[in-house]
Every structure is written in structure tokens, then in C-alpha cells.
Nucleic acid binder design. Sequence first.
DNA 1: CACAATACCTGCTAGC
DNA 2: TGCTAGCAGGTATTGT
Length: 272
Amino acid sequence: MPEMPEVEAVCRRIRPHVTGRTIERARLPRPGTAAGPAADEIERWLPGKRIGRVLRRGKNILLYLAGKPIPWRAVQVHLRMTGDLEIAPDARLLPAGARMILELGARRALVFNDPRALGRVRLLTPDQVRQMCASLGPEPLAAAFTIERLAAEARSCRKPVKLFLLDQERIAGIGNIYAAEILHASRIHPRRPANALSKPRLALLHAAIRNIMSRAVQSASAVYGEPGRWGEDEFPLLVYGRESEPCARCGRSIRRIPQAGRSTYYCPGCQR
DNA sequence: CACAATACCTGCTAGC
DNA sequence: TGCTAGCAGGTATTGT
């Protein structure tokens, strides 16, 4: 159930084990995993290809294929809610939720495990790689994500700021948990329209996005190698999942409200 | 066009 | 103990 920091941790964890390795066999045993082309074409086409760089864009993982094969240039994996990539010592004895297995030789396999089966795998042409990257907003930790850029995105968005933060086309990588934490850190009410944020509040929001996301990347990456553990275990969540508990900052009782069918947690005392 | 509601799946847990 | 409703860190698609 990863947001950008956990996806980044997954990339760092698998990178040394897959870079430069040749795919000997690919298996997508359950229907619905492939989002194009079809599973049997992916299984037929990948063997013999070598994995090059492992990159992340937003919450997407890209396994580039070395030697620029035609037509497909990269394997795209989106973990959605419950996906994870693991290095298995053996392609046998797989977890029940295994949705893709890339056998890499030397008793090593990359396994896409996803019990809830919402995650997706695609092969992308160079054009599709560019389209996917271009369709997403700036990376929150990149230099291009300035206060001015945030202000420009917010100005053109009338949605509640919580939903603005979740919009991957405006900023890439923020999810439900960190959106709540970011708004608490910047003392902004989640229902405030994005285009109603003042200059000073946008500056606070920008600082909170960078602060929360960079600390989350650090803590998520620090626990890699411990199966089933996400960075949030180490990252103190001040509002998310804390309905009815006292706010650490002002003591008021934290509230949970629905927004776009999902839970938003916030403090009615210090978020205005 | 912008936004809201729903669909997609399985597993866990709080409450009866 | 055993059942069930509700909820879960995401996003494509459909409807207004």
C-alpha cells in the first residue's frame, strides 16, 4: 500500500539484485495483472532481455531493458494498494498473492506480490515511457518543485486541498496518509479549496510537502530488508489513523471525515 | 472541462 | 467462537 516513499524504498531494495541480470523466464500466473500487452505476450517477449536501470516516477516503477529492444523499452509496475516487489531465492515456494515472477538465474527471482490484486504490469514503448512521465506532476523532492510551481497548480484547482494533494497530475507521489500529515504540519484544513490558499499558506504547504516526503523517504528506505514493514512504522504519524485521539500539538480530538470516498484525518483545533 | 461516485480485489478487525 | 460490516496506503472508468 505504498505511496512514493515506499515505492522509492522498493526500488532501492531491489536495484542491486536485478540490475544487469537477464530475464530467463517471466510468469504472470493470474489474469488481470497485465495492463497491456496481454500476459502471454509479456511472458513470451521478456525472456532473454537484460534489466538495465531501475527508476521511479511518482508511484510507478520502471525496469528499463538494456540494449534498447524494440518495441518495448521498459517494464512498468504499479503497486497500487497492496503490491510489493521482493527478491526471492527461488521461484518455487511463492506467496499466494504472486502476480508476476521474473526468473533471473542463480536461484534469484523478482516477485511482484499483491494479495489484493489491484496492481498492474505493463510493457512500455519509449513513447509510452515519455507519455507516462509527462502526464505526472513534478516530483515533490525535485528542484523543479518550487513554491511558484505549487502556487500555479493550486491556483487552477478548485478542489479541496486534500484532493489536490492526491492528484498525481499536479504533484506526483503523495497518497492518503502523507496528504493528511502534510496538511496537519502546515495547519491547513483539508476541505479548504486549493485555489483559496494564501501566499503564506502556500509557502507553509510547500515546506511541509518537502519536509514530510523527504523524512518519509528516509525512514521507508531505512527499514528495507524487513519483510512486510513499511516506512510508516518508523515515521510518527500525528493524525492519520488517530481518530478521537488528542492532537499532539493542541490537544483537540482528531477527526475523521470522508472525502471522495476515502478517510481524511485532521485536527479541528490547529487546522483552519 | 472539472469533479464525484463507483468498480476493481482480497484480507483484516472491531463489534456483535 | 463465529459471523459480518466496514475499512484498507490507488487509480481507471463512468456519470453528472
